[in-house]
């Protein structure tokens, strides 16, 4: 895959950015901008909506409309934007804590409505911005600032969550496989209904360090070791899949999108 020039989409005026050395979020943002460029989307048709957290801050570094909202509420803000302006591509970028814990309700209901948002979860399996507390995707046994004796909570599989809620494009990838990741992001953005992409993006500063996973390269290798493609996963037992990251596309279907349905309702009632 050729890398396109995306420098006009990136606002470097306030670099150095806030992300730590070795963080995966910059790779994920580049993949998003590459996907937007590949789709030939004009920048003014795209709105990036972030929540609160490390990942959510990346929306501040693009040369597009960007809204850095409140913790957990990015999907709800985006719902209002999409309903008011169905012609826009509305991207939500937020972390696992933001989307799956405090914002979980908005996530499942946006999926249920099949509203045309693209939700890109930068999943680093930890709360990074607040210094490394365990999140709904932190693997059991992991050390974190709030699980000093090892996490005992079971994890959320966010792809299965939004699939059950009604999402119509669902996929997972990691920042280790940028070409596949870029491809999935492009499909998620092009998708008319609610699309969700779980992007596994390691956090060396808090997850890696507290779990003694070594330097960023070693941490990325540990993610690679845990990665299983969806097809291979079908042949593995539940025990074998424990702690693994199943990647691939899980849902691709096209029932009516919410804002299109709403505009049909308005037209039927004589509204403009």
């Amino acid at each position: 895959m050729e890398l396109a020039d995306i420098s006009d989409l990136l606002d470097e005026s306030h670099f150095p950015h806030i992300l730590c050395a070795g963080c995966g979020h910059g790779i994920a943002l580049r993949a998003i901008l590459q996907a937007i460029r590949k789709l030939n989307l004009p920048a003014e048709r795209v709105v990036m909506v972030g929540g609160i957290g490390c990942s959510s801050r990346v929306v501040g570094y693009v040369r597009m409309d960007s809204i850095h909202t409140t913790h957990g509420r990015a999907v709800a803000f985006a719902t209002g934007i999409k309903l008011a302006r169905p012609d826009l591509k509305v991207l939500v970028i937020a972390g696992d804590g933001d989307l799956a814990a405090i914002g979980g309700n908005h996530l499942i209901h946006a999926a249920r409505r099949n509203i045309g948002l693209t939700v890109l979860c930068f999943n680093n399996e930890i709360y990074g911005m607040t210094s490394g507390q365990y999140s709904p995707t932190t693997p059991p046994g992991s050390m974190s600032a709030t699980s000093p004796y090892g996490a005992i909570e079971r994890t959320f599989d966010l792809c299965r969550l939004v699939e059950a809620a009604g999402a119509t494009y669902v996929a997972r990838s990691t920042v280790n496989e940028v070409f596949i990741l870029t491809e999935y992001i492009g499909r998620a953005i092009a998708h008319e209904g609610f699309s969700f992409l779980d992007i596994v993006s390691p956090c060396p500063t808090y997850f890696g360090r507290q779990n003694r996973l070594g330097d960023p390269v070693k941490l990325y290798e540990s993610v690679k070791d845990r990665t299983v493609r969806a097809k291979a996963a079908t042949k593995m037992s539940a025990e074998e899949l424990e702690g693994k990251l199943v990647v691939g596309e899980f849902v691709r279907k096209n029932p009516p999108e919410y804002t299109a349905e709403y505009r049909r309702l308005v037209a039927a009632r004589g509204g403009k």
Binding site: V49, I67, T69, A76, F77, T79, G80, I81, L83, H106
Partner: peptide
């Protein structure tokens, strides 16, 4: 939150 998005 949705109202604020629409207002924006």
């Amino acid at each position: 939150a949705a109202c604020l998005g629409a207002s924006l």
